[in-house]
């Protein structure tokens, strides 16, 4: 769970949301709209044809495919995988400079300008969702004009990964604050959740019993990826129990 000390330092009496995501695998069609939305929202560069052929692509979210049965009686299952925002994240204790840590809201944070690029975190991540910038990212004109100003461009030498769209969380909080109201369920929609045509993904505060995500978690269908490792991810996958 969130670190108490950090929570106190945040000050104020406001409730600290605990962000979580539920992904309904029975709804996911593997269309990869989330992958595209994530890349454009978070300024994730494309690797190019040659580099991609060598497996050097960078995706904050990917779709894993699982095949069940033999052709022609085959069933394909899709699983969107991004940073699982673990409560017991294996990436955090191995960072020598504290560039990655869990904040009071349960987000596994990556601070780019603190990162010195040891890459220990990526090596220790069982979900292989961390990516190292070997080179400075480049966008061929005019693609450089579509970059999202709310998200920093990661320079060469630092690690990056899914942030649960931390900038959109921030934006939603500021908007709510400007309107003088509390953050409501559904105000925060990470790019993947927003773009999912099958509405397979739900994001919200899992400690709010009325939130969509809390209801999904209590549905009895939810599980976590590589649960046995004890990483306690904040991403939950919903599947029909066999």
């Amino acid at each position: 769970m969130a670190k108490e000390a950090t929570q106190q330092a945040e000050g104020g009496t406001e409730r600290t949301p605990q962000w979580a995501m539920a992904i309904d695998l029975d709804r996911c069609t593997g269309c990869e709209a989330c992958v595209l939305a994530c890349a454009s929202e978070n300024n994730v560069p494309t690797a190019g044809e040659d580099q991609a052929a060598m497996g050097r692509t960078k995706h904050w979210i990917r779709i894993d495919r699982y095949y069940e049965g033999e052709f022609p009686d085959i069933k394909v299952k899709y699983r969107p995988v991004m940073c699982q925002q673990c409560d017991e994240a294996p990436c955090e204790p191995v960072c020598p400079v504290n560039a990655t840590y869990q904040n009071a809201e349960g987000l596994n944070v990556q601070i780019y300008n603190r990162c010195i690029g040891t890459r220990y975190c990526a090596n220790n991540c069982p979900y292989t969702v961390r990516f190292f910038n070997w080179f400075a990212p480049e966008w061929a004109e005019p693609l450089n004009l579509q970059l999202n100003p709310d998200v920093s461009i990661r320079p060469a030498g630092v690690m990056e990964k899914c942030t649960f769209c931390a900038h959109k969380i921030k934006r939603a909080k500021l908007d709510a604050d400007a309107e003088g109201r509390e953050l409501a369920d559904g105000d925060v929609q990470p790019a993947c959740v927003q773009s999912c045509p099958a509405e397979a993904m739900v994001f919200g505060d899992m400690t709010d019993p009325d939130s969509k995500v809390a209801r999904q978690l209590g549905s009895g269908r939810s599980g976590q990826l590589l649960e046995s490792l004890g990483t306690k991810p904040r991403v939950f996958y919903l599947e029909k129990a066999d």
Binding site: T6, A9, E10, G11, Y101, N103, A104, L107, V109, I111, Y112, N113, R114, V151, S152, T163, A166, H167, K170
Partner: peptide
Amino acid sequence: ATDDCLACHF
């Protein structure tokens, strides 16, 4: 106010 790194660096 918050002193979480994520408040400004993201």
